[in-house]
Design a protein around this nucleic acid. Structure first.
Lengths: 119, 119
DNA sequence: TCAACATTTGAACACTTGTTCATATGTTGA
DNA sequence: TCAACATATGAACAAGTGTTCAAATGTTGA
């Protein structure tokens, strides 16, 4: 057992600590998924879109007008947001109304704002 | 007043709604800052680092060993995390021990995990 | 069926980002 | 003072990202 730790003989450090923390570490796929979510939230255009949708349901054209971006750009970003289950849409005639998919965004934003305010 | 809304005459949409939401919109700089924070959290390596530090204080070398990355790569990322006040460090001889700067990361991660779990 | 409209899609481009490698700090014990 | 070590830094490169422009859907009222 524990035969796969042959490396790292030379340099530093606290073998036992590394072992312990490594055991408690989250799976790589989970870290990947979490980073994937934050990456989506890590763009000003998308943040503005979500902020707008935090206030109320909006169609693509309105979103574009509110945040000052082209409708194409907004549409591209909405697809990403939809893929990551951050927004959902509903059709009414030719118009697609977008809204937040759940309340995670609100909590994430409030925490995030709290952080940037105190830094 | 309201003289800067000359554009967008042609296309769609709900002028009043756009006006209303635009008034409630967050400043562009705030959206930028928030996106900046999430961008930092939007990388698997940095997520792993923060996950490790969630467990306990660690030195650069240990972090590298735990997450399986080079010490240089970890150092580069730690600088980013430090710049954004997500981690802090303390020196003990040659060794620099890093830890989380506050508890925002924990809450953000738990909300983020909750989202990816239900999507 | 058709024209008008809201939205989507694809390709292309400039731009950003994370890693690697080599080198530079800064600290320690001798 | 020096060598050994932990970490930081800079340049450079491949890979990823967001926007734009042009064209394609899909829906409606006439």
């Amino acid at each position: 057992m524990a035969a796969d730790l042959d490396r790292c003989d030379v340099s530093c450090i606290h073998r036992d600590v590394v072992e312990e923390v490594r055991r408690q570490m989250v799976e790589a796929t989970v870290a990947q998924a979490l980073a994937g979510l934050f990456k989506i939230l890590g763009d000003p255009t998308r943040v503005k879109i979500l902020f707008a949708l935090l206030k109320r349901e909006l169609c693509v054209c309105d979103i574009a007008a509110v945040i000052g971006a082209s409708e194409s750009a907004v549409s591209h970003q909405l697809r990403l947001l939809r893929t990551h289950k951050l927004v959902k849409n509903r059709r009414e005639g030719k118009v697609l109304y977008y809204s937040l998919a759940d309340d995670h965004v609100e909590i994430l934003f409030s925490q995030g704002l709290d952080h940037v305010a105190h830094s």
